[in-house]
Amino acid sequence: MLSDRSPLSLRAAAIGGLLFLHLPILLIFLYAFTTEERSFQFPPPGLTTQWFGVAWNDRPDIWPPLWLSLKVATIATAIALVLGTLVAAAMTRTAFFGRDQISLLILLPIALPGVITGMALRSAFGVMDIPFSVWTIVLGHATFCIVIVYNNAVARLRRLSGGIMEASADLGANAFQTFRHVLLPNMGSALLAGGMLAFALSFDEVIVTIFTAGSGTESKTLPIWMLDELIRPRQRPVTNVVAIVVFAATLLPILAAYYLTRGGSETAGMGK
């Protein structure tokens, strides 16, 4: 019988690895309170909460990107929810010609590096003379969000017993009633989880977005705003305040998605 106790060195390395993954993010919080706005001096010379007020009141350049990001993420998630659910429904329990190719096609936008998806979309807009707009951003985001919804939906559908659909049909329900009263309630939490992850992914996306957004200020999403601040910093702690907001806006949906799909065979995150 092998011992169930781990060697100390292994435990130390594992816990050290987890700390390595988490500690850097904590520094973002600390630096939001520093009084030093021109450098990243550690330890901060003094602590203040003034930057939250500054970000709220004195930086009107933050708000339009925030609204744009929320808008893009909402529309992209809605599109991904419909398309992802449709493919998932088609792919469970039916074998058909080209099934493997379709699953590869769904995975491709996320398996290839983002710069390729971005550059490909940009060439397509160039070839077809499509001007950049909010919709070109949405087009890119929805494409890689489909796989997230699909992964969650397909895992739940696989777990769902086929019997309940047959029972519903035996009791006289038509396909639409079965969808409305049997399928949807059973898939609800998985779809919600998929939608939340898709939202978090879209809200935070920058690599593809830069290629599909154009250069105008009206098409600047919050991550693009943040990237600009990283390259040409002014009032660095304000960037930290926004970083905390972005962090929370992605963290909360992820946690919610985890609790919604916990206990199942779904692994909410494996799709990214």
């Binding site: 991550p223 990237l227 972005v246 963290l251 992820i254």
Partner: peptide, 11 residues
């Protein structure tokens, strides 16, 4: 492992 994977890339 999941949280750092999903949390904001730019942050």
């Amino acid at each position: 492992v999941m949280l750092p994977l999903w949390s904001s890339y730019l942050v």
